[in-house]
Design a protein around this nucleic acid. Structure first.
Lengths: 118, 118
DNA sequence: GAAGAGTGTCAGTGCCTGCTAACGTTAGCG
DNA sequence: CGCTAACGTTAGCAGGCACTGACACTCTTC
């Protein structure tokens, strides 16, 4: 059990950091496509695309379905839930920060006013 | 101007792909901190943290404010807007895909049988 | 079972990236 | 001006990642 526990959020974000992988995700979000159809979209070799697909699959962003000799891939929206939570947390934190700034400004204007009226 | 136009979404996602950078973002989302305070949180050198901060700043995820010799950093929630749009697009596409699947399931018996009996 | 189509996997290579150490820069103090 | 504090910046190095080419695997068809 000495395996380094992989952070799901980290794996998803690293998977999304690659432009080609995002393109693949867009492709299979709209339609279910085979590995060959996906690879035909790009100029790089099918090997590279296969590796990208593997990364996306390991990140939980893709679902594989075998049909004959072909393998069909489809986007998996649940895989993005963690990222969404992260973004919401960040946004809430930043808003909280903005609120603090607003309060600080109010307290600051008091001081300023004390100076001005004093 | 032969500069390669940098895709904002790509830059932001690559910035978020680093665990330490996400930690930094969490820190400055809750409080405004100086470079030294941020660096003190980590075990690595301040140089590394400074570089991470530069990446976050270039991605538009951070705001710098100079106060004396110190530089205070704060999260910038607007920088995440692009990512949110991307996620929403992905999610909508995947839901559209799910709808197609539901429709397909209704009239699908042929394909399923071909697959199962194959 | 042999052949062919459709894909995944492995080894190797070049680039990119995160890290450290040394140096340069700016602001405050005497 | 000389000195210190708080940073950013640069050069150099080690590890990781994306890519290619060759090989292996799995179904289908004959």
């Amino acid at each position: 059990m000495g395996l380094t526990e992989p952070d799901p959020t980290d794996e998803v974000l690293r998977a999304l950091a690659e432009p080609r992988r995002r393109t693949i995700l867009r492709l299979v979000a709209h339609d279910e496509l085979s590995a060959g159809e996906i690879a035909a979209t790009f100029e790089v070799s099918r090997t590279a695309i296969s590796q990208h697909v593997t990364v996306l699959k390991n990140a939980g962003l893709l679902t594989e379905r075998r049909a004959g000799t072909r393998r069909l891939y489809r986007a998996r929206p649940e895989g993005l839930a963690g990222i969404r939570a992260f973004l919401d947390e960040m946004w809430a934190g930043a808003l909280d920060n903005a609120r603090r700034l607003a309060e600080a400004e109010r307290g600051l204007s008091d001081d300023v006013e004390a100076e001005r009226t004093g």
